[in-house]
Computed example of a mutant assay.
Amino acid sequence: MTNEQTTFTLGSGVELPQIGFGVYQTPPEETADAVQAALETGYRHIDTAAAYGNEKGVGEAFERSGLDRADVFLESKVWVVDYGYEETLHAFEKSAAKLGVDQIDLLILHQAYPKRFDRTIQAYKALETLLADGKVRAIGVSNFLPVRLERLLNETDVVPAVNQIEVHPYTQQRELQAFNREHRILTQAWSPIGGMRTYGDGDTPLKDETITAIAQTHGKTPAQIMLRWHIQEGRQVIPKSVRPARIAENFDVFDFELSADEIARIDALEQGMTMVPDELDFDTFSIEIPEA
């Protein structure tokens, strides 16, 4: 076993690190410092989105880093108000300008938006054009259920490289993961340690007795155990934090390995609890994406 992370090879041949750094809900004024800490730690994949309002902070941190463009994998998402063919082409221009780059490594649709799925299809076709033109290196989706993926696959040409979905020990979405695997779509796990959800009396997987016990066995934290669980099961993970110590801790998951029994014990924690974005009315979100 190596102490260094390896990569996933996406359908387009692009390589994506096993662990990335997310900035969901990171305040714009804190984003640059958080991303800078992540890059200094060794993260080389940064995941943001137009709807997060912090793409400029990501771009600022990358510029500060002095790293070569080829060494940092930048991912962003198109929000639903910019769905449609021409609208999505322009959404790329807005995101690229905020990030301060000419090419985005991975650009994905943020939601399936079933209420207006015709616009979703046109948005994805715009992503295909951006891919063909070399403006993005890979394209994909987020929060797409199998029924939405089936229609997308039937009406477009390029299989999504990734489907970014909620996955952690309490919400595993095994059927959706299996669909992704069947179609060679990489599962990216958002909220990989369950920090964005509370269950029952407010507990999260971070407090789970099984995970805590496994963590004590390895001399690791519960978060590190969950991230290792994702990696060994073949998912790409995007943990988030604004604290340098936690950012570094979440990256320190390549010097140990979970046993098959430990993996099975974590698998058994599934509670089937998830907020299905497919059911939300995105027209009520009132998120507008400003120009760069």
Results as ranks from 00 to 15, higher is better:
residue 118 D to L: 06
residue 149 L to R: 00
residue 111 Q to I: 00
residue 115 K to L: 04
residue 158 V to P: 02
residue 146 P to D: 13
residue 139 I to N: 04
residue 123 A to Y: 06
residue 152 L to N: 11
residue 75 E to S: 15
residue 61 A to T: 06
residue 72 V to N: 04
residue 78 V to F: 00
residue 144 F to T: 10
residue 144 F to E: 02
residue 125 K to M: 07
residue 107 L to F: 05
residue 86 E to W: 01
residue 111 Q to K: 10
residue 117 F to T: 09
residue 78 V to N: 09
residue 100 G to Q: 12
residue 98 K to A: 15
residue 146 P to K: 01
residue 145 L to G: 01
residue 61 A to L: 03
residue 114 P to M: 06
residue 131 L to C: 03
residue 161 A to V: 03
residue 95 S to I: 05
residue 109 L to C: 11
residue 68 D to R: 10
residue 105 D to I: 06
residue 118 D to V: 12
residue 119 R to V: 00
residue 129 T to P: 00
residue 140 G to C: 02
residue 68 D to P: 11
residue 73 F to E: 05
residue 83 Y to R: 11
residue 137 R to I: 05
residue 125 K to D: 07
residue 63 E to I: 10
residue 150 E to L: 07
residue 92 F to G: 04
residue 150 E to M: 03
residue 73 F to S: 02
residue 92 F to H: 14
residue 65 S to K: 09
residue 92 F to I: 07
residue 70 A to K: 13
residue 136 V to L: 02
residue 105 D to S: 12
residue 113 Y to S: 12
residue 134 G to M: 02
residue 146 P to H: 07
residue 117 F to N: 04
residue 144 F to V: 04
residue 64 R to G: 06
residue 71 D to F: 00
residue 162 V to S: 01
residue 136 V to D: 01
residue 76 S to F: 03
residue 124 Y to F: 13
residue 80 V to M: 10
residue 118 D to I: 11
residue 86 E to P: 06
residue 89 L to Q: 11
residue 105 D to V: 09
residue 163 N to T: 06
residue 112 A to G: 12
residue 89 L to P: 04
residue 78 V to C: 05
residue 75 E to M: 14
residue 165 I to P: 01
residue 154 N to C: 08
residue 64 R to S: 09
residue 123 A to C: 11
residue 137 R to K: 15
residue 92 F to E: 02
residue 111 Q to P: 00
residue 135 K to N: 10
residue 61 A to R: 03
residue 127 L to T: 05
residue 140 G to R: 03
residue 63 E to W: 04
residue 112 A to V: 08
residue 150 E to F: 00
residue 67 L to D: 06
residue 136 V to P: 04
residue 154 N to G: 13
residue 154 N to S: 14
residue 74 L to I: 14
residue 114 P to C: 02
residue 141 V to A: 07
residue 153 L to E: 07
residue 151 R to Q: 14
residue 90 H to E: 14
residue 119 R to E: 14
residue 140 G to S: 01
residue 134 G to P: 09
residue 76 S to K: 09
residue 153 L to P: 01
residue 130 L to W: 10
residue 153 L to D: 11
residue 72 V to I: 15
residue 147 V to K: 13
residue 118 D to R: 11
residue 103 Q to T: 15
residue 94 K to D: 00
residue 109 L to E: 09
residue 130 L to N: 13
residue 85 Y to Q: 10
residue 163 N to P: 08
residue 68 D to S: 13
residue 116 R to T: 12
residue 103 Q to M: 09
residue 90 H to Y: 13
residue 164 Q to S: 07
residue 96 A to V: 13
residue 69 R to F: 03
residue 108 I to L: 15
residue 127 L to D: 04
residue 119 R to D: 08
residue 83 Y to L: 08
residue 119 R to M: 08
residue 102 D to Y: 08
residue 145 L to F: 05
residue 157 D to K: 15
residue 65 S to Y: 02
residue 113 Y to N: 14
residue 132 A to L: 10
residue 85 Y to L: 08
residue 165 I to C: 01
residue 95 S to C: 11
residue 147 V to N: 13
residue 67 L to V: 11
residue 64 R to M: 03
residue 80 V to G: 00
residue 112 A to C: 11
residue 92 F to L: 08
residue 147 V to F: 04
residue 157 D to Q: 15
residue 117 F to L: 04
residue 81 V to P: 00
residue 66 G to C: 13
residue 88 T to R: 07
residue 125 K to S: 03
residue 153 L to T: 08
residue 111 Q to G: 00
residue 65 S to V: 13
residue 141 V to M: 03
residue 79 W to C: 03
residue 153 L to V: 07
